[in-house]
Nucleic acid binder design. Structure first.
Length: 569
RNA sequence: GUAACCGUAGCGAAGCUGGAUAUCGCAUCAGACUCCGACUCUGAAGGCCGCGGGUUCGAAUCCCGCCGGUUACACCA
């Protein structure tokens, strides 16, 4: 379905051509002065500059051919040369009707691409902490958004499941069954001991090498660690409503490392420097020095960059993705510049496969420093979620008569929305402050406010259905007859453009911004118009069809953001 | 030191391919609704868009310099 700005633009462009001007000046945008108009065109200002003419005269000329269009309620040239546009109820309701009858409410799917999203980054045998939260939330959203746009999205958690950390655990691990809680205490203990006890450290190092060379005893222990740890990680990610297609990790590509390094040497890219094997990645255009990428440490071990390169090689082999999207802390930006450059130079990834890194900022506490527990330790993800759910629970049980069980269930849904919306409504690259009170507030630009709006609409529709068997559909949609209704329609109609834009910019916060606008517009409308008591049946059905569309758009958006709405709250 | 990112009302954010009176929320003040699910709505107040310069008819937006914050700068991930 056509985007509203494109539709208006096509009319404007014809008028520009008729006025003897280039059609490129007919660009239309959402008005930044809603008090004056709904859409605007600034093209006459630029045209006048080039042609040395008076902009307002050009604007007058363009407008004159459109004055009588039934698509506009008004179109006028305004000093110094703006064209201000208001849509007619007919044109607007036509769009809304079309939206309501389409599967994705006007969003068109794109040419299908295969896209790998590398997010999560959990470590085996270590609890998820808030550092993992943003990657999970943003990654899941990007994945869902891409799928909505028609792409094949493959999410890979890319576990930290290899290397010295595993050797440490294996060395200290008892025989027989082990629980996740035990595992989680073993790692910090082993890590601490290795720092003091050189003998222990050496043993752990040996275990690491044994594991990597396929020693049966170490492999057996490793398998047990993986089994216990994966089950726990899956449980926690499920709680976040975050789901991966692939549970690969560093171990997955172990066998590829040696040939990869050999290949880099054979190609003349990798050379020895201070005992390590490195690949130069500096480019003439660099403003700052990009150090060479180390692919093998001086002790012979592979590292982060190596396993990322091997992973790329494997993904090319298996999926040939058109786009790779990595979602990590922005402090890793340099690492990805290096890895991407080596991948290009060595032809592991061909030119036409895009490599993208989204670096996100830190989630801070109110003191502006990385979020900590009250005692100053690293905040576990579980704890953060529980705290949020408790806060929501207190709110919904405060003035309401609701069963404990139902309130618990609702606070899970609402709590998750609070966390995710609080995160995603910020630009990913920026740091933000996690403010429990603010995020869980039911008013303002928050997840709960959005959910509340959805629940309200659900409730109205449910009530109508319980009172009437008369169905309503998109065909019942009539032109607006109040200003708040028009404002709601104007918001709704932006949907396809907003989603396309959010996708191309990989910017979930634009979806949040949009749904907040829709929710606000709906609430104003709701406040002004009595829907269920409307006596004119056709008008009532038109209202219902519009609020149902509003609800559906909001629901699609929150599902993309990664959370759900309860039936009641 | 070098580089990147950030600096927008008391607080939190949006706007950054240049356009009109800089947008939204929280908090504050004043009203409305108290009805379809309470937490909804309307309005007011609040700003040298970090500072200085430049380009332009026009700059929060582009360019240069400075100040402040965060981060990165080879064997961790």
């Amino acid at each position: 379905m056509k985007k509203m700005t494109d539709f208006i633009e096509s009319l404007l462009k014809d008028a520009f051509i008729e006025a003897g001007l280039d059609e490129s000046y007919g660009r239309v945008s959402l008005s930044n002065r809603p008090d004056l108009c709904e859409y605007q065109c600034n093209g006459c200002l630029s045209a006048a500059k080039v042609l040395h003419k008076n902009p307002i005269e050009l604007a007058d000329q363009v407008v004159s051919t459109l004055k009588n269009s039934s698509d506009f309620e008004s179109i006028e040239a305004v000093a110094p040369g703006f064209i201000n546009i208001r849509l007619s109820g007919k044109a607007l309701s036509f769009f809304v009707k079309q939206m309501a009858s389409e599967e994705k409410y006007g969003v068109e799917t794109e040419e299908k691409k295969t896209i790998i999203v590398d997010y999560g980054g959990a470590n085996v045998a270590k609890p998820l902490h808030i550092g993992h939260l943003r990657s999970a939330i943003i990654g899941e959203c990007i994945k869902r958004l891409g799928a909505y746009m028609g792409h094949t999205m493959i999410g890979d958690v890319h576990l930290g499941d290899w290397g010295l950390q595993m050797g440490l655990i294996i060395e200290m691990m008892p025989d027989g069954p082990v629980s996740i809680d035990e595992l989680e205490t073993i790692y910090p203990a082993a890590s601490a001991r290795a720092k003091e006890d050189a003998d222990f450290a050496e043993k752990a190092h040996q275990k690491t090498l044994l594991l990597q060379s396929g020693d049966p005893e170490c492999t057996e222990k490793w398998n047990r660690i993986m089994e216990v740890s994966l089950a726990d990680l899956k449980k926690n990610y499920n709680r976040l409503d975050v789901h991966f297609d692939l549970w690969n990790g560093e171990s997955t590509v172990n066998a590829l490392i040696a040939p990869l390094i050999q290949n880099l040497i054979d190609k003349g890219l990798a050379y020895e420097s201070d005992g390590a094997l490195v690949v130069d990645v500096a480019e003439a255009a660099d403003k700052k020095e990009i150090p060479p990428c180390i692919v093998r440490k001086s002790d012979g071990a592979a590292l982060y960059a190596t396993s990322d390169l091997a992973t790329l090689e494997q993904r090319e082999e298996l999926y040939k993705p058109d786009i790779y999207i990595y979602i990590t802390d922005k402090r890793q930006a340099m690492h990805f510049v290096q890895v991407f450059r080596v991948a290009r130079k060595s032809d592991i990834v061909p030119e036409d496969h895009r490599l993208v890194h989204i670096g996100f900022g830190t989630m801070n506490g109110k003191d502006g420093k990385p979020y900590k527990t009250r005692s100053g330790g690293v905040m576990r993800l579980e704890e953060l979620i529980s705290d949020t759910e408790d806060a929501v629970f207190r709110k919904i049980t405060e003035n309401r008569d609701i069963s404990e069980e139902e309130a618990r269930k609702t606070s899970e849904t609402v709590g998750l929305a609070a966390i995710k919306y609080g995160d995603l409504s910020n630009q990913a690259s920026k740091d933000y402050v996690f403010d429990l009170d603010r995020f869980t507030a039911f008013e303002g630009n928050t997840g709960p406010y959005i959910l509340y709006t959805i629940v309200r609409i659900k409730s109205i529709i449910k009530r109508y259905r319980s009172e009437s068997t008369d169905m309503f559909t998109a065909d019942d949609i009539l032109p607006y007859n109040s200003l708040s209704e028009k404002k709601l329609e104007l918001e709704l109609v932006r949907y396809n453009e907003v989603m396309e834009n959010a996708w191309h910019e990989l910017a979930p916060h634009k979806i949040c911004q949009y749904i907040y606008g829709v929710a606000e517009a709906f609430n104003s409308f709701y406040h002004e118009v009595k829907i269920l008591t409307e006596e004119d049946v056709s008008l009532k059905k038109s209202y219902l069809a519009k609020i149902e569309l509003t609800m559906n758009v909001l629901l699609d958006c929150i599902h993309i953001l990664g959370f759900d709405a309860p039936e009641k709250m």
